[in-house]
Amino acid sequence: MIECKNIGKTYVNGDMETHALRDVSFTINDGEFVAIMGPSGSGKSTLMHIIGCLDTPTRGEYLLDRKDVAKLSDDALADIRMQKIGFVFQAFNLLPRTSVLRNVMLPLIYAEKGEAERIEKAKEALSASAFPEKFWEHYSNQLSGGMMQRVAIARALVNDPTLILADEPTGNLDTKTGNMVLETFQRLHKEQGRTIVLITHEPDIAEHAERIIHIRDGDIVSDSKQHKQRLAVNLL
């Protein structure tokens, strides 16, 4: 469960103060599929960094599973990310010249899990993200964009996180493969009850979530449940 209470972030650059986030409060319960939507410069990236424990807010409280993480050190934040958060990035960020399986295992390597457990969990995660088994030993740079993003999703799933944070996951993909990725998220949400936060600037993409938090100029403009979720149709 995520609780943001009056979160603000101010960047100071010389005499200039930039308020990336002013006063943001919301709660995301376990099992929700939320889209955070806003144009570029709205503060959604800053918000994502704070939710993802990559950054800490200047003001306010951020509770992740009822634990205040706002004041933690870099290394303590790294531990939280390792245990509770799975990232999916726009640019996939896979290790090149490294097998798909090893890419997925990477979070478990940092968690110092044993070899057998790693392989088992990595295979589970790859199956969950519908990544075909015949490519498991391929190098990540030999795959297509859609496939790469599925590997990234598997990597985000592998440590069984509280929250999957997807930052413009379809931004580098065409509509077809983008749909495939969104379909994967919806399925993970429905079948496994995963909590997913989708960051996007496109309303079309945001409509695939159950709830949309609209953000502009560092403030929440609207926060509404969607009665009818747009279903990602597998166009392939």
Binding site: R81, M82, Y110, N159
Partner: peptide, 15 residues
């Protein structure tokens, strides 16, 4: 970018 990713998925400074 690779270092950024490693840090995002839980690598500490020491790692």
């Amino acid at each position: 970018r690779e270092i950024g990713l490693r840090k995002a998925i839980g690598a500490k400074r020491r790692d």
